[in-house]
């Protein structure tokens, strides 16, 4: 699909973020090798891709868990309880902000306002928005994702 689009494009660099997203989707994150693969696809130098990959929030140059939790820490969510929710998540997952659970399931990252201030406090997991959050709702969401993961991962 993407490679067709690249072929058809007069300016392949316009697809570079899409390509990196797709490659990231496939490998989980943009390792050096993944980045080089993406670079080859769009015919750009790996450095040029790294210049972008390290710029954007949603491109990960380090390994992340299967579910990347982006907890909004901007002003409305902050006012509506970001800090206690963050502490709750950290405790619940046994990790600090910026870390990944040992089972590789969850990575916890802060994020700027995700545009769901009307449903604050809010968070984004794999680009799906949740809010307004409470500790209980968070527990529920984590549970659902855990069982979803268990179902789809052959043990």
């Amino acid at each position: 699909m993407l490679s067709q689009q690249i072929q058809a494009s007069k300016h392949p660099p316009e697809l570079v973020v899409d390509v990196m997203m797709a490659v990231q989707e496939h490998y989980g994150y943009l390792s050096d090798e993944a980045l080089e693969e993406a670079a080859a696809m769009v015919g750009m130098a790996p450095t040029k891709l790294d210049e972008l990959a390290t710029f954007y929030t949603f491109l990960y140059r380090e390994p992340v868990g299967r579910y990347v939790i982006h907890l909004c820490d901007s002003v409305i969510c902050w006012m509506d309880g970001y800090e206690p929710l963050r502490d709750h998540l950290c405790k619940k997952l046994g990790i600090q902000m910026g870390e990944t659970t040992p089972d590789g399931l969850f990575t916890l990252l802060p994020v700027c306002c995700i545009g769901y201030c009307d449903r604050s406090p809010a968070m984004l997991i794999n680009k799906k928005a949740y809010g307004p959050l409470t500790s209980e709702k968070i527990d529920e969401i984590l549970e659902t994702l855990r069982s979803e993961a268990a179902e789809t991962t052959p043990s």
Partner: peptide, 25 residues
């Protein structure tokens, strides 16, 4: 439809155009 990689500055016109061209925004 072009999905951004996610950065506030991408909302600024000229940065957005750079982003669309695969340059640093």
């Amino acid at each position: 439809v072009h999905r951004s990689g996610g950065r506030y500055i991408c909302g600024e016109v000229t940065a957005q155009l750079n982003a669309l061209m695969g340059k640093r925004p």
